[in-house]
Computed example of a mutant assay.
Amino acid sequence: MTRKVILYIATSLDGYIADEHGAIDWLTAYGEQDIVAEDESYQALLNRIDTVLLGRTTYDQIINEFMVEHNDDYYYENMKNYVFTNRPAEARKNVVFINGSVVDCVRQLKVQDGQDIWLIGGTSIITPLIEKDLIDEYQITIIPMMLGNGTKLFEKLTKNRNKTLKLTNSRAVGDMMYLTYARQDS
């Protein structure tokens, strides 16, 4: 059985995953926290996966912002982590730094034994996987905020445009909308 690659990510209503300075603090500042806490999709995702894929910027935000702010350990230390980067990094348990192709890595991971794989972000690793049709499921939370500028969730695609996905689930939590789409095999 092939492992699934799941893009689980939040975006502003106007399609941005980070503001114009690359910050994602707008995500935790949004809305009534008790309504946000009702969301069980994150825990459901964690129960399905044993591997995470991150771009270096996303990894650094987790290490330098979220962990520091919450005085926490590395969130995914009990999973296999692949961080795609061309910069040196400090070693961490279960983290592999890769200066290579995310496409090649994912093709290898999909045929290995294990649970599903979470594609956390950012666009430098999301776009090539879309273009090679290697993302099986898109779980996208739309936060009803307009950022106006920043890092777009979906950058300009050069390949695999006009790809149709199938809506498999949708639900609202407060004012947020949770959408799940699956890849349709051709």
Rank of each mutant, 00 (worst) to 15 (best):
I125M: 05
L119S: 09
L147D: 02
D136C: 10
L119N: 11
G148F: 00
I120N: 09
L119G: 05
Q108Y: 08
I125Q: 05
I142Q: 13
T141H: 01
V106Y: 00
I120P: 07
L134I: 06
L129Y: 04
Q115F: 03
T151W: 03
Q112G: 04
K166N: 07
R161N: 14
L119T: 07
V106I: 03
M145K: 11
T123D: 09
K152F: 04
E131F: 06
T158W: 03
L109R: 00
I117C: 02
I125W: 01
Y138H: 11
T164H: 02
W118I: 11
W118E: 14
Y138A: 08
I125V: 05
M146P: 09
T141K: 11
I125F: 02
P128I: 00
G121W: 00
K163H: 13
K159L: 06
K132R: 12
I142K: 05
I140E: 11
L129D: 06
L147T: 04
I117K: 02
I126C: 13
E131S: 01
D136G: 04
I143F: 09
E137V: 02
E131L: 08
G148C: 10
V111W: 01
N149P: 08
K156Y: 04
T127R: 08
C105T: 15
T141V: 14
K132E: 14
G121K: 01
T123W: 06
V111M: 14
N149K: 15
T123V: 15
I117P: 05
I143P: 02
K163I: 01
I120D: 10
V102C: 10
S124M: 06
R107H: 11
I135C: 00
T123E: 12
Y138L: 14
I130C: 04
T164G: 08
G121Q: 07
E155Q: 11
K152H: 09
E131N: 01
I140N: 06
I117M: 06
L153G: 06
K132Q: 10
D104C: 08
M146L: 15
P128V: 06
Y138M: 10
E131A: 01
I140R: 03
M146F: 12
T127M: 13
I135T: 00
K156Q: 11
K110N: 05
C105L: 07
L165D: 05
W118V: 03
V103H: 01
K159I: 00
P144F: 00
D113Q: 11
L147F: 04
K159C: 11
M146N: 10
L153E: 01
G150L: 13
P128T: 00
T123M: 00
L165G: 13
E131H: 00
L165R: 13
W118H: 12
I120R: 00
P144I: 02
G114C: 03
I142R: 12
E137Y: 03
I126L: 11
I142P: 06
N149H: 13
K159M: 13
M145V: 15
S124H: 02
M145S: 10
I126N: 12
T151A: 14
L119K: 10
V106F: 07
R161E: 14
Q115E: 09
N160S: 11
I140P: 12
F154Q: 04
K159V: 07
Q139T: 02
M145E: 12
E137L: 11
L165P: 07
G150P: 13
I143S: 03
